[in-house]
Structures are given as C-alpha cells and as structure tokens.
Design a protein around this nucleic acid. Structure first.
Lengths: 325, 325
DNA sequence: ATGTTTCGTGCAACCGGTTGCAGAACTTCC
DNA sequence: GGAAGTTCTGCAACCGGTTGCACGAAACAT
C-alpha cells in the first residue's frame, strides 16, 4: 500500500497534523522539523491524496471539460491547450464527449459536479435554461455561446465573417452564399448577422446544414442552384466537403467559385486547393477559459462573471480567387 | 451546499448507513425503506460523492488516459472511444497530454496515480524500465508498445506494412523507400522489420524522421535522391507532407511516385490525391484498452496481463498507381 | 523577574461516505 | 411454544487528509 500521512508521522515522530502542515502550510512548521518530515516522506514515497484532501477543503483541483465531439478537429487544440494550462496551475482535467447529445451532456455534468471545482463547456448543446440551472451546483465557463450572467469565452466570428466578405468583395465577388451551420448555433447566427449587414453584396443563405464534410458535399447542389461566385461556409469541414462536391460536378475552385471556411483546422492546410479560412484562436480560448474558470473558483460566492472576446483573423490561401469574367 | 448522505438520513428518519446501502447495496435494504429514501434523495438532489466513496472503497471510478499529443489527429478518435466506453461502465477519464516529454509523462502518472484506478498509456515515450517501476503503484494498459508482463494493446502495423508493400509490388513497384518514424518507436521498428522481410523489392530506409507533416516535407529531397518509385511513410502526416514536398518540386503523385501512409487520419481522406493508407483500428484500440484495464482493476493483485493485437487493413485511394514506364 | 507575544506542535473533530458486527423483529420449522 | 434462521437496521470505526483551538516553550518588552 502507498504511504499515508500517518506512516510519515509515525516514522518521523511527529503528529499527523504536523505532516499535513508540512505540505499544505509549510510556513507554520519549524524549518528543521519540516526538512526532516520532507526527507522521510520522500523516502517513503509519500504523495498527498488529493481526493482525501478535497473532502475537507472542498477543492478537488480537478476541472471538467465537456465538448460535443472530441474527434471534431476543431476541439483537440483547445483541449490540449486547456489541459496544459490547467496542469501548470496544478489542476487535472476530465475530458468528456457528449456525442452532440444534450441528454448525455446533462448527465455528464451532474456526475462530474462533485468531482471538479469547475466545468468548461464548449459549444454546449444544452438549453440556456438548463445550463443556468446546473450552474447553481458548480462554476461554469462557457465557450462559444453567449450566456448572460455567466463567464464566457467567445471567438469573434462576426468580425471574421466581415473580413472574409471584404476579401471576397475585393476580389470582385458580389453574389455570395452563406452555408449556415446547425440551427441553434450561436456561431452560425453571428456569421449570418455579419453577412447580412455587409454592403454591396447579394447574399443567399443556404441551410441549416450539418456541420460536417458530408453536409458540405450535400450542399454543393444548392450552391450551384444559387448561382453565386463565392461561398462562406460555417466551418472548414463543410468548406472542404463543398470543394469536394463541386469538384465531383466539374466545378473548379477557385476558378469558378471561391470558397472560404472557418476554424483553420489542420486538414484545411493540407487539402488542395489549400483552404482560405477564418482562423479561430482555439488554443487561446482554451487557456482563457481555464483562467476565467479558476478565477471563478477562487472567488467563491462573490464571483463576477467575465466575458472574453478573442480576435479572429483571415488566412488567405488558395481556395479564393478573382471572380470569373 | 449540496445534500449529503446525512441530510438524506435525517430527512427520512433512518441512519446514514441505511442511506449508504440504499445506493451501494440496494438488496440489503427493505424495498419500502429504499423507496422512501430514494424519493427523499431525489427530492434533495442528493448525489453520492465519488471522491468520498473512493476513500473507503479504494475505487475512484476514474481512469487516466495519457497521450503524447492530443492535437495529433491520430489520438482523438482513440480518446473519444475510450472515454465513451469508460462512461458506459460508469468511469470518468482524465486526459493528459505529455507534449512528447518523458519527464512530464512521469510526473503526470505520479500525480494521477492516487486519483485513478488505472492508467492507459498511449505510445509512451518513457523507458520500459520506468514504466515497469510506475506500474507497481497503479495498473497500466499500454497501447502501441510491446511490454512483457503488462497488458498491452497493439495494432498490427507489421501486417499493414506487408499489405501496403504487396499492393505496391502488384502495381509493379520494385524500388521502394520506407520513411521511418522517430528512433525509439515500436511502430517504426515493426514496419521496417516487415518491409525488410519482403521479397523481391529493393528497400531504402530513410530516417529517422520527425513524425509530422514537416518531417515529410523535409524528406522529399532524400526520397528523390533514393531514386524510388514508391514510398511507405511512417504515418499519414508524413505522407501528406511528402506529397506536398514532392509537389513543390514538380513531382507528381502517383504519376511518378506512389505514396502510402499509415493511420487513416481524417485529413488523409480530404487531401488531393486522397491518400492510400494503412487503417489503424484506433476506436477499437481505445475500447479494448479500457476493457483490459477494467479487467485488471477488477482482478486486483491476481491480475494476469493480457495482450490484444488488433488487425489493420489497407485502404486504397488515389496516391498510389502503376509504376511509371 | 514578570507579563506579553510569537512560534511550533498536538489534540480532536470533521469532510462524506462504507462496512463488519450486533441486535431487534419477524419467519420458519419441529 | 421454543430454537434456529432471515431480514433489516443501527452503531461506530475507518478511509486520508485538514484545521480551529489550546497549550507549553522561547523571545521580547518593561
């Protein structure tokens, strides 16, 4: 069995409380005693049991990170960044995948609640109402969804959409289609609001669509029917699918139609043509979300929700070009 | 504050032990009492505290999953599958990223040890020695590395490599290069063993290389110098990079050189030409690893290490073709 | 020399559960 | 009708830590 605090106490001839303090409040114990205890602890391979500690302190030093789909290339960089950032602050993170199912999401949060100090909710599928309810039990930070009264990390996709459209209009495009995402998506709404507000273009909104490669392929027909020269897609996966669908129909990108995606996921850099896209600050979002969450955790009841909006930028590659004459 | 077992006990006029048993050994309590307790628990929103339970039972119902790099597209499907499979068995999983650093890996395992019932180690960078040492403290299942005396999940990449080479020879290729992976990699050794054993081909081994897109780009020069007509790359990322590097030099794939990757990651399906590749059963590996681990956890000291070898298969797409005449 | 702080440590209760043991109430059997 | 089981519940110790409180010793002030 692994050494406990009592083993260390016995071996060093002090009371358990002294050993405890050696680790959790070193300044309260005599340097001499402390060193002796530390040496013996080291010797016995003692490591404090975080779960036991959590029982009295109420701090588990764990975070929960809930995403809709781990395998969606958008998330791994965020997970990685969040996890690394948390680790620096001595936090471990549970990662859970809801498979896009709100029901699963809710259950997950409930069973996780007791084991974590806070939960990071990325692109939640749950209703605002449900989230607010659950947030009574555990601090939340929500990524990619606006929720008043709650700490939030947003990526300014509206701005990104404007940049994309400016880029397209500079290339001479006037008739532009927006391939919308899933119905309830905040991101999708932001994008279409931005696109609708753009001057001097004729916008066709196609969708809602499934935010997958398949959704993009399926939309190719509708894009052709819309008779546009450029398309802004909800995300890169759809954009890639669309390029594929257009290719199957002998339509060249960017020769006949220009395509812009959103997210800047890895595959987009590898396809041909390489995808022009709105880069999302996913790593920064992961780090920021952890920071906000720990801030919330530290503040306890007096917590003030914070809102962080992260900038996006346009990466121009090869899937956009001048409007065909 | 969240309701505890004592709140429920008080509210239902029974002793805490009865409440405890209602949840952890229902058959020991009178159905009538049980229902009353359950109703009141429901009412109070009571949920057992897993950490507290772990203290006495020694079972945390948590697993640790350690990978070298979450953002490497190879891992997310495995993580997703493992996590989903664990959840069905009422286990949560900590996911941690070592950033390819053995030091970090070791620390991570140590701090995680007390909080989990077992650890899944995917493509570990740690020495066998270190892993064996650490395995005294917590059950391990190792994925993608052969380690005697320890439960292991392997993907039969040797077989995959043979399939790939058969495919290439059937197309007429004789001079083939193997783009090796990192030096210590078990997978890389398996592949080169298989390739060396193949009959009737002239093999050039290039490497070790960094297992990234960049490594592939960098290897393009060496591939051309080797004067081969086909290349088997350590993984898809490298294969994609190689195709890119060759393209920059005006070399057509598969027109002049055929390229086969390994892993079947998502981007490979999206590039052009679409990548011929050896598909790895990553989801199955994740599930199998969880099964083996839980089996180990259940068995306690009497655990018998098991070995699972998962089949790979070849997916023929567009990056391979007949040898140029 | 005495009174007041400061410092270091021990004591014991507590966090939220689990579990071996014991005993009460109720059955079953002869 | 009493002995022997069953079934259900309570008691209390325990898991591995933390922490408020008390107390003795040393350091300081007067």
């Amino acid at each position: 069995m692994a050494a406990t605090i009592r083993d260390v106490a016995q071996a060093s001839g002090v009371h358990v409380s002294t050993v405890s303090r050696t680790f959790s409040a070193p300044h309260l114990v005599n340097p001499e005693t402390r060193n002796r205890v530390l040496a013996i602890a080291e010797d016995l391979g003692y490591r404090p049991n975080r779960a036991a500690r959590a029982l009295t302190t109420g701090r588990t030093h764990n975070l929960g990170l809930i995403v809709a789909d781990i395998a969606n290339p958008f998330f791994p960089p965020l997970i990685k960044a969040a996890q690394a950032h948390a680790r620096l602050r001595d936090y471990h993170v549970f990662v859970a995948d809801t498979d896009e199912d709100p029901q699963v999401e809710e259950e997950l949060i409930q069973t996780l609640t007791k084991q974590v100090d806070g939960v990071l909710l990325c692109s939640p599928r749950l209703s605002n109402r449900a989230i607010e309810k659950l947030s009574e039990d555990v601090p939340f930070v929500v990524v990619n969804r606006r929720l008043r009264g709650m700490s939030t990390v947003l990526m300014d996709v509206g701005h990104g959409a404007r940049l994309a459209i400016e880029h397209l209009t500079a290339l001479g495009h006037r008739r532009i289609a927006l391939l919308a995402g899933p119905a309830g998506s905040w991101t999708s709404r932001e994008m279409s609001d931005a696109a609708r507000a753009a001057d001097g273009i004729e916008l066709t909104v196609i969708g809602p669509n499934s935010p997958t490669e398949h959704g993009g392929i399926a939309a190719a027909e509708a894009v052709l029917a819309a008779d546009v020269t450029a398309v802004l897609a909800y995300n890169d996966l759809m954009a890639i699918g669309l390029v594929e669908g257009l290719d199957e129909r002998g339509v060249e990108v960017p020769g006949r139609i220009s395509v812009v995606g959103v997210d800047d996921i890895v595959p987009g850099r590898l396809t041909r043509p390489k995808l022009t896209t709105v880069a999302m600050p996913t790593e920064a979002a992961g780090r920021t979300a952890v920071d906000l969450l720990l801030q919330l955790v530290g503040a306890g009841e007096t917590a003030t929700p914070a809102l962080a909006t992260l900038a996006t930028h346009l990466i121009i590659r090869d899937s956009t070009g001048p409007v065909p004459s």
